[in-house]
Every structure is written in C-alpha cells, then in structure tokens.
Design a protein around this nucleic acid. Structure first.
Lengths: 208, 208, 208, 208
DNA sequence: TGTTAAACGAGACGGTACGTCACGTCTTCGC
DNA sequence: GCGAAGACGTGACGTACCGTCTCGTTTAACA
C-alpha cells in the first residue's frame, strides 16, 4: 500500500507503524476540509502530529499520498447477494455512488486521475491500488449470475475479459460522470434504470 | 464563454480582443507541454505575449481559464449521419474519444472537474460551457432516430429528459473512464461493442 | 478642492491653472494621510479630480511633484523683528520647527532629500525651490543685526558668504536633526538655548 | 543590532550566521549601486546568495534591513585624542562627514529617517541602533575636556544631559545638512570654523 | 545492559509561483 | 483637440509551500 521500503532495515530505530495510519487519516481529513488543491503536506504532517520529514520519508509527494489515502475508502465495497443480477448491479452502483459522494473521495480521486494523465507511474499506482482491486466485483458478479443461470457460460476467455473491462468502464464511468460531472444524485431510481439498460444490453432480456 | 464583462464599458481604452484568443491558445499549448499542475499563469501570459495583469483582469484564476480553454475543444463535435443509430453513436464516441485523447483536454478537463467538487461556481461554469453545450448531441440523435423509426416517439417529456441525461452520463462516462482511468484506447471495436450494448439496452433490439 | 465653477468659460483653458493648484494641494493631503512611500500618483490624480495623464504631462515623477508641493510650505517663513538678534533667531527656529512638524513637510522633505543623493537634477531643483529661497532669512537677519549694532560690518564678502552658509547649515541642521532624528519637540527653551550658543559662538558676547 | 530572535531557539536547524553578514554586506553594495529607491529585497537576496524568504525571516522589510546595514558604518567612529577640545570636535566632524559621504550611508540614512516620520517602531530602531549608540562620543568628549580643564565640572545632571543632546543635534545636524542638503563638502576649514563657533558658544572662550 | 544507528520533532534553507499593486505609456471616446 | 477613463507591459511586492538540509533527541534491536 505504502511507499516501498527498499530494504528491510537490519538496525536502528524502526519506522513507527502508527505514523502511517495517522498520516493517511490526516490526509483524508484534510481532503474533506480543504480539498485537493489547498491540501499541503505541511498541514497533513501537523494534523498527524508528525514532522514533514517523516512524511517525505514514506511518500514521494502529494499524489502518491492521496492515492493511498483514497484507495482505502473503496475497500469497503461489497457485492450484495440480492438474488438477481439486476439487483446486484443496482446495489453495487449505489454503494459506489455513496463512496464517491464523500468529499474525501470526490476531491482526491479526480485530482489524482487528472495528474495521472501525465505520469505513468502514478497511473500504474492508481490501477494497482484502486481500479484493478475493484474489478473483482465484476468478476464475482458474473460468476454468481452464471451460477444462477442469468448469464451464459463464457467460452472465449479473451473476449470474456474484454467484456468485463467494458462493463467495468460503463458502470464506473456512468456513476462517476453522474456524480462528479453532471453533479446529480445517484438515486435508487437512477440506479435501477441504469441496471436495466445495462442488463438488457448484455443479454437482450428485460429483467422481471 | 470568457470572463464576463460586468458592464459594457462606455469609456476608456477597450480590451484587446486579440489578447483573449492568444491567451486561450497559449493555455492549451501550456497544457500540452506541462499539464495542469505545472501550468502557471505567468507562463501562459508569457506565451501569449501578454502581461500577467491582463490575464488576471479577465479570468479569476487557473480554473476558470482552463475551463474556457478546454470548452472550445468540444465545440468541434458533430453528430455524424451514418444511416443508423448504432453507427451514429459509435461515431460520436470515437470523436469524443479522439478529443479526450488530446493532452490539452485530458490534463485540463479532469483537473477542473476535480476542482469543481469544492467550488459550486466552477461547477456551474463547467456545466454551462461544456456539459450542457454537448448534450445537444443526444437530443439530435434521438430526433433523428425517431425520424428513421429506430426509436419510438416519446410521450412523457419529463421521462424523456431523464432518459436523455442518463444516456449522456453513460456515453460520456464510459468514454472518460476508458480513456483516463483504465487508460486503454477507444478503438473502433470498443466503440461498436459499447454502442451495441447501449442500443440493445434501450430498445431490446439488436442492431443489424 | 477642484474648480467646480458654476459658469466655466467655454473657451481657452480656464482649467489648466486650477489643475496645478489642485494637484499640489492633493499631493500635500496625500502626504499627510499616507506619507511619502505609500503616496501614489494615481491616488493624487484621483484626489485632484484629474487624469493620471494630466499629472504626468506636468511633472516628471513623484520626486519632482513632491518638491514643488513641499516648497510652497516654506514660503510662509518670516524673519520676526523682535528687537534683538537672539530673539530673531529663536523666532525663526520656532517657525521652522513648526513647519517641519507638519506631516506633509516631514514625510516629503526628507524623502526627496534622500532621493536627491543620487539625482543631481533633483538636488538642483531642491536647492532652487527650497534651500536658496530661504537663505534670504540669514542675510536679512545679518543686515538687521548690523543695523542694530549687534554684529560688526563684514569686510570680506567671500568670508561673509561662507559664514552665512555655515550658519544656515547650523540652524537648519540642528532643527531638522532635533525634529526628525532625535524626534524631540523644539520647545521655546530649546530654541532659546540654541540661539544663545549660536550667538555667543558668533560674537563671543552673551546676549542680555 | 539585527532582527531580534524572540527566543533563542532550542530546537530545529539553527540560523546561518554567515547569511546575516552576507545580507548586510549585499545591502550596502546595493545601496551604492542603486540607491534606496531602486534597491529591491529580491536583488539583495540574490547578491547575498540567499533566498528571499531567508531575508524576510530575519527582517521585517526594507526599512529595518537598511537601518541595520547602515548602523554598522557608524561604529567605526572614534573620538580622536588631539590634545584640545576644539581639535577633537573637528576630528569627529571630519570622520562623521567622511562616513556620510559614502553613498551607502547617504542614500540609506536619509531615506530611513524619512520613513521613520510615520513609523514609531522604525524611529525607535534608528535611535537605538544609530543615534544613541553614537551619543557616547559627546559624553566621552566632555569627560576628557573636563579632565583637561577645558570645561567646568557639571553640577546638575539633568541640565548636563540636556546640553549633551543639544550638542549632539547641533553637530550631527550641521554635518548632515552641509553634506546632504547643501551638498557641499565638509572641508577641514569648514570643520574648524564649526568647531570654533560651537566651542565659543559653549564656553565663551575662543580656542587658542 | 549498554551500544548504536536509524527514525524522529523541529525548523531553517534555496526555490518557484502566487495574486496584487503601482508604475509610466498607450488607446479610445466625449465635451 | 484636450482630457477622463482605463487597458496595457513591466517589475517588485510579501506570502505560501515546496522538497531538502541540518540539528539535537528518542528508541528499539543487537551485542
């Protein structure tokens, strides 16, 4: 999760584990209060009760720090077992929207994505820490739907993976766009409508 | 489009019209070379051959300036008349992806969206300058598809508008997510796959 | 302050002369409120109800303007005829101190003198407008004292002039230093003490 | 002499002592080349090989910095032991004039005095750093003259102090006025003439 | 149990950019 | 055709953070 420790130190005082947690927590608090652009590392250090040097020893800069601080937020996403694929999708969409609605996620996530457009290492870090981590939800959902007989078994694994990516982009993209760009709330109705279109688009079958 | 002139000045030397264009162009050039976070207003002013004060006289800050500079990029979007709704959607998706792939759009757009999460005035500016401006494409597309008989006539105008918004979020969201977050290219195949799912989701009819 | 004459002449330039006075008066007012370093020509122009261009047409800059504005203050100095040289000196010292105590004089005079250390034209302007103009007081005083028999007639005109200059430096210097550097008030006692020392130093005679 | 550190810091990196000296030296160099009004703190910092922030950490602004830079110049003043009070006065006057003739003194001293007319803290700083520091010369001179029998012993300490102040104003004032306002050189003749008048004025006795 | 080497807090350092202000010049238009 | 209004290029201001660099001080693992 955090900045690489190049070699597991043999001697000397070990790094404080508590400091890491305090810094990430302070980062989220600062994101809530100040937003990305006014967040300063000096301020985060002060909030965490830690010296600026300690912070720089562990993270390379603001971007890396915020990615780690935000990534933790998405780990609480769970695929609900609601009995039908449509309801499962709707459930995940609502959970995702709820997280995205928290100011520490909003403010930080889009900013690091923006930065990542010019920084390959940062983009890789985002994918590893956030995106790929949550793609599990799409895979789990498919397995479950296939078990229920809502989706046919995949034959070609390549095309299966490609479709999974497409679905992920569609789900995540729509929610992000609705929340951050259109700045409209993701209501139950909206989520149901979205899930219907997606499901019908995938199977040609209108859910019950 | 640009910073409002609160009163159409009657007296004094009028503002240089050329300066506005030069500044916006310089802003885009700086976005290409430096990206959002390293772009400085001083540098933009220098590139535009303009004093920093002139720039500040017209825009309140980096955010406002970049919104205006980026907004112009999206005005070249055109709804292609390809004969079928599926092809029209695919065409718009590809155009949109092509614009988003340009570094001046990538780098700037996401950053101002991130900033807008904490700044209502900025969000309003983005909606007015970019989002609502392009929503026309969805509306045109629907009218044309209805004329072709591909979509039924809408009866309830409220639900029609709601559906249009949903479609807009889905299209824009998926392309943005694919391009910026997943950082994968929007190929013709991808666009065709997306258009198929969307269309099937909307009509229950698989395109020819 | 500015000339709002109810029936202004339509022809000629009735305003030009008034503008000069208004500007100098505004300069003094600004010196009182803001002091030299915070005085701006834009502000003076506004106070005088005049455009900045008008001001620049008549004065080369802040220095020149302030010299003229301050010079007028010293023209009210008069050599009192108090019956004795000692009393005359004391009277002039007190008058001079009273003028120097006014904020528009204090703040402006020393500043232009400071500037003049690097600007020969400015120094010349100060000498012509202020210093040499007031040297008349020393000369008048000497003539009057000689008429009264308090001072012997001068024989060598060169040494006479040299002595006059020395006296002028001593009087003006002591008052300026007392007022501005030591920042102590020039009281009647102080002025009497000073006059006594000076007179005794010049004549070897203690005044009655 | 310099910006007081309110507490002798116990922790953190200590301030560079070399920086202080470099800054003051650079300030004097800049005064020589540019004069007060064109001296900028950014330029001083560059000359001193120091960041602007370092400079601002130690001095509140241009005024305070220049006071300290100039004050050091006057520390080299020494009361010569020439055998007679008249010669001692003449010697100090010449030394003082020599310092005042240096452009870094001229240009800076009068400017800060001008500023001090509107800034009590600055005036206090000037008095502490420059004026009171040099008043020692008057006191030393009197003690020595009394030892020689040239001046009577003082009885009333209050009037003694008042007289010392008056003498200081007269000496410093005359030299400053001669040098900066009249802009005439302080020659040996002038200094002798001045010392004679002063001494005669004080004692009623013409020096040998 | 004492040594020792890294981590720690504090904060000064050289930098860069900020957004503002005043400068002195230049248009433009109205009286 | 002068003068008010005000935009312009220029350049310094003083501030805020950056990321790095000393300092003197813990502190845990090792010897």
């Amino acid at each position: 999760m955090q900045s690489r420790s190049p070699a597991p130190r043999a001697t000397g005082r070990p790094r404080s584990a508590a400091a890491d947690a305090a810094i990430l927590e302070a980062t989220r608090a600062a994101l809530v209060e100040l937003g990305w652009s006014k967040l300063t590392l000096g301020d985060v250090a002060t909030r965490a009760g830690v010296a600026k040097t300690t912070l720089y020893r562990r993270w390379a800069g603001k971007n890396e720090l915020v990615v780690d601080a935000v990534a933790e937020l998405f780990d609480e996403l769970r695929l609900p077992d609601s009995g039908s694929l449509a309801a499962d999708i709707q459930g995940v969409v609502l959970q995702f929207a709820a997280i995205l609605d928290r100011p520490e996620a909003k403010s930080g996530l889009m900013a690091v994505i923006a930065e990542a457009t010019r920084d390959d290492a940062l983009r890789a870090r985002i994918r590893a820490s956030i995106v790929d981590r949550q793609k599990r939800l799409v895979l789990e959902g498919r397995v479950r739907a296939q078990a229920r007989g809502e989706l046919p078994a995949e034959e070609d694994p390549v095309s299966a993976s490609r479709t999974a990516d497409l679905i992920f982009d569609m789900v995540a993209g729509a929610v992000v766009h609705r929340t951050l760009v259109s700045a409209e709330p993701v209501t139950e109705d909206w989520a149901r409508g979205f899930a219907q279109i997606l499901l019908l688009g995938l199977t040609g079958t209108r859910p019950a």
